[in-house]
Computed example of a mutant assay.
Amino acid sequence: MKKLLVCTALGLAALSAQAKDIVDTAVAAGNFKTLATALQAAGLVETLKGKGPFTVFAPTDEAFAKIPKADLDALLKDKAKLTQVLTYHVVPGKVMAKDVKAGKVKTVAGPELTLGTTGGVTVDNAKVTAADIVADNGVIHVIDSVVLPR
């Protein structure tokens, strides 16, 4: 009986220590409320909870606040455009900051992002402010601005 209790306790500990997917990781961080709302509005939550792996350049609430409120509200109501903008922040595969190479990289949306490595990692005109937040289906790099497809 004692062995059964120890095994059960170890099993529960392992379950609670299990990594979270990209969406759960972002929500738990607390500073991606606008991103979570946008993912929900675009119907992308299940996609980013999927197998992956994905590399997500995630704008914070502060980054979304740089967009005029009327423009952000309009974007949140335009599912097609919102999906295009959000998937422009996602790159297939799991790319850690140390593996980023300067140049163009294709996004899930199709258009390419321009990555820079001088003075830290940049994504188009956004700076990575926190890197390598590992989720069980990829990695999140926090950026200080929303990047828009050209």
Score class of each variant (00 low, 15 high):
Q40W: 01
I133D: 00
V146I: 03
K94Y: 04
T37I: 02
V108N: 11
G119C: 10
L15V: 14
A17R: 06
V146T: 01
L5S: 14
T117H: 14
L115I: 12
V146H: 04
L44W: 14
F32P: 01
K127R: 10
A9C: 15
L15S: 13
V134R: 03
D21E: 02
Q84I: 04
K20N: 13
L113N: 03
A130N: 09
I140W: 02
A70G: 13
T55A: 12
K20C: 02
H89V: 05
V90G: 05
K94H: 07
N137C: 05
V146G: 01
K101V: 15
D73W: 00
G50A: 15
G138T: 01
L86K: 13
D132E: 10
Y88S: 01
T122E: 08
A74P: 08
D124R: 09
A63R: 03
P68W: 00
K81H: 10
N125Y: 05
V108G: 08
A131D: 10
G116Q: 13
M1Y: 14
K66W: 06
V27P: 08
V105P: 00
L72P: 04
I140N: 06
L35M: 03
V45M: 03
V128F: 05
L86M: 06
V6K: 07
K101H: 14
L10E: 14
L115K: 13
V90W: 08
S16Y: 10
K2I: 12
V95H: 08
A135W: 00
V121A: 05
V123P: 00
V139F: 11
Q18F: 10
K106Q: 15
A109G: 08
V56I: 11
A9W: 05
A80V: 11
K69I: 07
V85F: 06
L148N: 07
E62S: 05
T8F: 15
P53K: 06
V121K: 12
I140D: 04
V90Y: 06
M1H: 10
K106W: 12
A130S: 15
V123M: 09
P149M: 02
H141T: 02
A109K: 07
V6H: 07
V85Q: 02
